[in-house]
């Protein structure tokens, strides 16, 4: 099973991912209906992509009292049942990443559905700032960053 991984250090903030996400889902470019969002931290010259991380035990699903959220067993994506969703926004507040949005017209929540296994944000990111990788290796970069920090303290290397 694959999950989405973001690399904020690579993101340049072009928001082409937002464009394609809303375009493919809604037939229109609309940032508020994109399941992926890029926030710019101007003071640090950073662009931080924010999207669903496909939590194994999804807080959004746990928070939903209407049974509107479920997991696609094939992809692991959280699927919104628009009939059941009452737009209470409990899942928005439960999400550790702030990755859940809401459709102001339909008044139902918006969660990444992984485009059925071919995420369009990944397909259109020219910077490699978002990737779709096997869960088992998803966060190797985190460990690498830690290893680098430790190594930096060991000045002489193996000597």
């Amino acid at each position: 099973m694959n999950v989405l991984v973001t690399y904020p250090d690579r993101c340049v903030g072009c928001r082409i991912c937002e464009q394609w996400c809303s375009w493919k889902h809604e037939g229109q470019v609309n940032s508020t209906k994109s399941r992926v969002r890029v926030n710019r931290v101007h003071s640090k010259y950073l662009n931080i992509p924010v999207t669903c991380m496909q939590c194994a035990k999804s807080p959004c699903i746990a928070a939903c009292r209407e049974g509107a959220l479920s997991k696609n067993p094939a992809t692991g994506a959280v699927i919104v049942d628009e009939e059941k969703c009452i737009g209470c926004r409990r899942c928005i507040r439960a999400c550790p990443y702030g990755a859940v949005g809401i459709d102001k017209e339909k008044k139902v929540v918006l969660i990444c559905d992984l485009c059925g296994g071919e995420p369009q944000c990944v397909a259109h990111c020219r910077e490699g700032a978002i990737d779709y990788v096997p869960l088992a290796v998803a966060d190797r970069g985190q460990r690498a960053a830690y290893v680098e920090t430790v190594a930096a303290t060991m000045e002489g290397g193996c000597r």
Binding site: V12, G13, C14, R15, I16, Q19, Y45, N47, R126, E127
Partner: peptide, 16 residues
């Protein structure tokens, strides 16, 4: 030290 892009740009010529 980095790059910065305007909206919808496939080039991203902005340099930090």
């Amino acid at each position: 030290v980095g790059h910065s892009s305007c909206y919808a740009c496939p080039i991203a010529c902005g340099k930090v």
